[in-house]
């Protein structure tokens, strides 16, 4: 058996692709051999590190899709970051043009490609609405069969799944149902208390990105893409609430929410949104399942946020066409 030092020598990764957030971060580093951050958390397929501004960046194994503030690496030779001698708080440095977690692994950037997807634009016209209504039936079936319980699935099936009977929900599922319902009511009716209703969802749920955060993140991601001034103003309202208030949630989740506020979106989620408003998308089921497989229940909750966001943005859920969102927005200002 080789010594640990010998093994770590072999842990050389080659960058495959990185998003514009990670790329800008790298470009901002002007000095060599400097510490650029510290390891925040380590999982089997992901290492997160935090820079001096508390922004979290992720190093992903190649089988994970492109994500905001992330770099995908070809890690031939090992498949589990937990096997490497990496500990929380360990220094992350840039040296000789490579990113290094000392004693664990080095990422070489020679062949990196910038992942900069074309922005999807969704126009809430009749064609889009009818395509979405057709595709949503496929989504509903997938959610029922493969969606993970414990988060927003109960809310969705109860309110949009057209099911008479559901299994007994947990306290958390009931709370999410109530709070998401309240948030959407306030949004639809431009009612008072929108701020409290959004904040009551943030941080609610199990796991490292609580279900409520996943839902909101998916919802915002879609609203960012809808080409309609009234929807943009609604989004602006939500953004202002989230930016101007302290959000009580995990650091990883904060990074996810901030990224969605900036219009950054993961590759799988973008594919799903595109598929839901596309005609004849033969890969829609695959795209849905790809998102469901993210995290434990995160993918399911993100997708529910996306679908509800589309329902809102396409005016299926609500009534922004009937409400003078613009007037309301400026009155509140």
């Amino acid at each position: 058996m080789n010594s640990q030092a010998e093994r770590s020598k072999r842990a050389v990764c080659f960058a495959l692709s990185l998003d514009t957030g990670f790329n800008s971060f790298l470009n901002s580093i002007k000095k060599e051999a400097v510490m650029i951050g510290q390891v925040h958390s380590v999982f089997k397929r992901v290492v997160n590190f935090q820079d001096h501004n508390q922004q979290i960046y992720s190093i992903l194994q190649r089988d994970i899709d492109n994500q905001p503030y992330s770099i995908r690496v070809d890690q031939s030779g090992f498949d589990n970051f937990l096997e490497l001698p990496i500990s929380v708080g360990q220094a992350v440095i840039i040296k000789n043009g490579s990113l290094e977690i000392k004693g664990a692994f080095i990422i070489k950037f020679e062949q990196r490609e910038l992942w900069e997807p074309e922005k999807l634009k969704i126009y809430p016209d009749q064609t889009t609405v009818s395509l979405f209504k057709k595709n949503i039936k496929i989504y509903n079936k997938c959610l029922l069969l493969s969606g993970v319980n414990g988060g927003g699935k109960y809310y969705y099936l109860r309110n949009h799944g057209h099911l008479k009977r559901l299994s007994t929900p947990s306290h958390l599922e009931k709370e999410l149902d109530r709070r998401i319902g309240s948030f959407l009511f306030k949004l639809n009716n431009q009612a008072k208390g929108l701020k409290d209703s959004i904040l009551s969802i943030i941080g609610l749920g199990n796991g490292l990105t609580p279900a409520g955060d996943d839902f909101i993140s998916g919802f915002i991601s879609v609203l960012n893409l809808i080409q309609e001034p009234k929807v943009s103003l609604t989004l602006q309202q939500i953004k202002e609430i989230l930016k101007n208030n302290d959000l009580s949630t995990t650091e990883l989740s904060l990074t996810m929410i901030r990224a969605s506020l900036e219009g950054r979106i993961s590759e799988n989620l973008k594919d799903l949104i595109g598929g839901l408003v596309d005609s004849e998308d033969l890969h829609l089921v695959h795209k849905i399942k790809q998102v469901f497989s993210m995290g434990f229940s995160s993918g399911t909750d993100l997708s529910i946020g996306v679908v509800i966001g589309l329902m809102y943005g396409l005016d299926i859920l609500g009534k922004w066409r009937q409400i003078d969102v613009i007037k309301n927005y400026y009155q509140k200002k």
């Binding site: 941080g203 609610l204 749920g205 199990n206 609580p210």
Partner: peptide, 14 residues
Amino acid sequence: EAVVAMATKMNKEL
């Protein structure tokens, strides 16, 4: 009952 969750404000409320 058993809850395993991060200690966010909303989870504490729960």
